Amino acid sequence: MTAAEPSDLVGRFLTVAETAEVLRVSATQAYALVRSGELPAIRVGAARMWRVERSELEAYIQARYEEERRVANWRQSEFAIVPELRQGPLL
């Protein structure tokens, strides 16, 4: 018998509190991401509690990494076009 994968133990959906733990943010910040639609989630059950699908959370994380890479590349290219920085100190 093999040990269960960690994702098998958690299940397909996460509560907003569990999502906050994964992202290492407060529950308030996680709720804000969900309510704004930035992090896709669904409401389930009679209490209409928010649930975040694991695959959506992973996609969100990957999208944030990609956004950070693009911002870093843009910042580097912005400075690359300044002649004074490319050629060293002015004489």
Rank of each mutant, 00 (worst) to 15 (best):
N73R: 07
V16H: 02
R35F: 08
E21N: 13
L39M: 12
T28K: 15
A72Y: 00
V34W: 01
S77V: 06
E84Y: 03
L91F: 06
M1E: 08
S55V: 10
P40G: 13
F13R: 03
I61G: 01
V71H: 02
R69F: 00
F79Q: 15
R24I: 04
R48P: 00
V44I: 11
Q62L: 15
R69V: 09
P83E: 13
G11V: 05
P83L: 11
E38A: 15
A47R: 10
F79W: 02
E66D: 12
E67W: 00
E53T: 05
V16G: 08
E56W: 01
E58P: 00
R64M: 10
A59Y: 00
R69N: 07
A72E: 10
R43K: 14
M49V: 14
Q76H: 04
R70Q: 13
T2F: 04
A27Y: 07
A47D: 06
V22A: 13
R75C: 07
E18D: 15
P40K: 12
V10Q: 05
L23M: 09
S26M: 10
R70A: 14
R54W: 04
E56A: 15
E53L: 05
V82N: 07
W74L: 15
L85D: 06
P89Q: 02
E68K: 10
G45T: 09
F13D: 12
R54G: 14
R64H: 02
R75T: 04
R86G: 08
A80N: 10
R64N: 08
R51P: 12
I42P: 00
W50Q: 09
E18A: 15
L85T: 07
A4H: 02
I61P: 01
Q76N: 11
N73S: 10
P40L: 15
V71N: 03
R24H: 08
L14I: 10
M49L: 15
I81K: 08
A20W: 01
Y65A: 14
F79C: 14
R24T: 12
W50M: 11
G88H: 05
A80W: 00
E78P: 00
V71S: 05
L85C: 08
W74Y: 03
W74G: 08
Y31K: 11
E5L: 14
S7C: 03
F13P: 06
R69D: 12
A41W: 02
A3T: 10
V16Y: 01
L91M: 06
E66T: 09
A32L: 14
S7D: 10
E78R: 11
E5Y: 03
A46Y: 08
E18G: 11
S55K: 07
T15I: 10
E84Q: 11
V34T: 07
T15S: 15
A32H: 07
S26F: 09
A59C: 05
Q62N: 10
F79M: 15
A20L: 07
R12Q: 13
I42N: 01
W74S: 09
T15V: 09
L39R: 02
E5K: 08
V34C: 13
T15E: 06
V10M: 05
G11P: 09
E67S: 12
V10C: 05
E66M: 06
Q87N: 13
A27E: 13
V82I: 15
G37R: 04
E58W: 01
V52Q: 02
T15G: 12
L57N: 03
E68W: 00
E56R: 07
P6L: 14
I61A: 03
